[in-house]
Simulated scan of single mutants.
Amino acid sequence: MNRRGLLIMGAAAPALAAGLPAASAVRVQTVAPPDPTEMVRLWPNGAPGGEGVTVVPIVPERSTDPAYRDRYAQYTTDPIMTVMRPERPNGSAMLLIPGGGYRWSVLDKEGFDVARVFAASGTTCFVLRYRLPADGWAAGPDAPLQDAQRAIRLIRSRAAEFGVRPDRIAVLGASAGGHLAGLASARTDGAYAPVDAADEVSLRPDLTVLMYPVATMADPHAHAGSRDHLLGASPSVEQVAAYSLERMNWTGAAPVFLLHAMDDASVPVENSLQLLTTLKAASVKVEAHLFQEGGHGFGVRLIQGRPAQVWPELARAWAARLDFPL
């Protein structure tokens, strides 16, 4: 038996002594699961406003452990959705928008890893690889929003093909991806000119989950990195107001589920608290969960063994009360 096997047996011993199965004490994965292979291009004739774009896409790997992957997509020029189909579909869809400070988009921690959790309970998941606002796109800070709106419309217009209901499309965003998901939920205007029949359907999600979201662009609670990459180093007062989620009109928006850790040192919990106040004032159905500890960017893997690991079950229970299986 190799050293890894001995370590596993040692860790499992307390559970075995207590009469519990070893699997309940230790869940060891030695090789990262394969990526889903089904992909959908958002823009068949190229993303809009790319005449001045010269960046070259990269997808670096940061993990040195074969048990998991930790990649990020930077300088994306051809936005895509990666589709993760469940074995037993429940009719719901979820567009996952990972974070990355609008500097890049993490693919695994807040994308594929979270998608696997919800696909396991029947939700058809779509992980969005979106364009970034500082890469020279004509739409500037609205370039990521164009991709999010187009993704929602593609899922809804092709609902039968994906085996989902057109009125059961959720969006889940984490960190800066939470800001983007919030924009997609609050803004009623289309951020791009229609390109085909898919753009005739609604761009609004039916349910919104925001994980430790970047919400405000205003000091003292703004995440400076996200703001700089979205709006530049010296945004105007008008820009700050226009892109702060807590200052938007959320009247008529889909129900929102908020989760945040109180000890988040990157995106202060006030981002969620201020947004919660706005949502309540707008009579949006909202549920919020604040955890004493968890830090930032925990996804599902980095929170194991801590109280916040239950957040997917909390989100499912909340959505079920709204007749929305997740």
Rank of each mutant, 00 (worst) to 15 (best):
R71E: 03
P86M: 06
G46Y: 11
T77N: 03
L128S: 01
Q309K: 07
I155F: 03
R116E: 05
L245I: 08
H229V: 02
G101V: 08
L132G: 01
N45E: 12
A198G: 09
P21Y: 10
E200V: 02
T30R: 15
V237E: 15
R247V: 01
G173M: 10
A308E: 09
S175V: 08
W137Y: 15
V284C: 11
T251Q: 13
D142A: 13
V53A: 01
G225C: 06
R27T: 10
A186G: 11
P36Y: 10
A222K: 15
S202G: 12
L7H: 14
P312V: 04
L20D: 10
A222V: 13
L230H: 11
T76M: 11
Q146M: 14
Y130P: 00
P34I: 06
L259A: 01
L275E: 10
E51C: 02
S157E: 03
A159F: 10
G122I: 10
A242M: 05
A261C: 15
G19Q: 12
F324Y: 12
N249S: 13
G5S: 14
A319C: 08
P268E: 09
Y243K: 03
P133D: 11
D196L: 06
A176H: 09
S121H: 07
M217K: 07
R103T: 04
Q292I: 04
F162I: 01
T278E: 07
G5T: 14
